[in-house]
């Protein structure tokens, strides 16, 4: 189901918690699984549940509670742009418009070629660098005016 490398990483996470508290690693395990599989399918969540000895529905609860888990395919690059108030005061609306226009999709949609998904995000804790955009949950891009968005898309496309 998951690669040995992914399982090793999950085991490292489990080791952070007391021995009878494996469930504490569920967020990390889901994140690792999602990174490997692109998104969280039902059988992936079921696998994580069994691996950690949790009720499956408890894993589903976690996967649907936290924003950064994806329960449907997201395309090659998921771009999450923060539209919170501080970002909006520094150009997030313009950035979001620009992204929608260039990618030809609205929020929560995947481009026809499957290469991008555009998502609306909430505060990422980096408002001083607004507008903030997150690529695939991991890479934070800051001060995303039109030029920098164009450059990012070019880079991701190539």
């Amino acid at each position: 189901m998951l690669s040995p490398e992914a399982l090793r990483r999950i085991d490292t996470e489990i080791a952070k918690y007391p021995a009878d508290q494996k469930q504490s690693a569920v967020m990390a395990a889901l994140a690792i699984a999602q990174q490997e599989k692109g998104w969280l399918a039902e059988d992936t969540m079921a696998f994580v549940a069994d691996y950690l000895g949790m009720p499956q529905v408890a894993v589903l609860e976690v996967a649907t509670f936290y924003n950064m888990y994806d329960l449907s395919p997201v395309g090659k690059s998921k771009l999450t742009i923060c539209t919170g108030l501080p970002c909006a005061l520094s150009g997030a609306d313009e950035a979001a418009d620009h992204l929608r226009e260039k990618l030809g999709v609205g929020f929560s949609e995947v481009t026809a070629d499957g290469s991008f998904m555009l998502k609306e995000g909430e505060c990422m804790g980096a408002c001083g660098d607004a507008p903030v955009l997150l690529v695939n949950n991991r890479r934070m891009c800051v001060r995303m005016n039109k030029e920098r968005i164009d450059a990012l898309l070019d880079e991701l496309n190539s």
Partner: peptide
């Protein structure tokens, strides 16, 4: 046995079973 759970958050919370 935990068969029912609350998925989602806030106003989108719903009671359901796995799959």
């Amino acid at each position: 046995i935990m068969e029912l759970g609350v998925a989602g958050r806030g106003e989108h919370s719903e009671i359901l079973t796995f799959m």
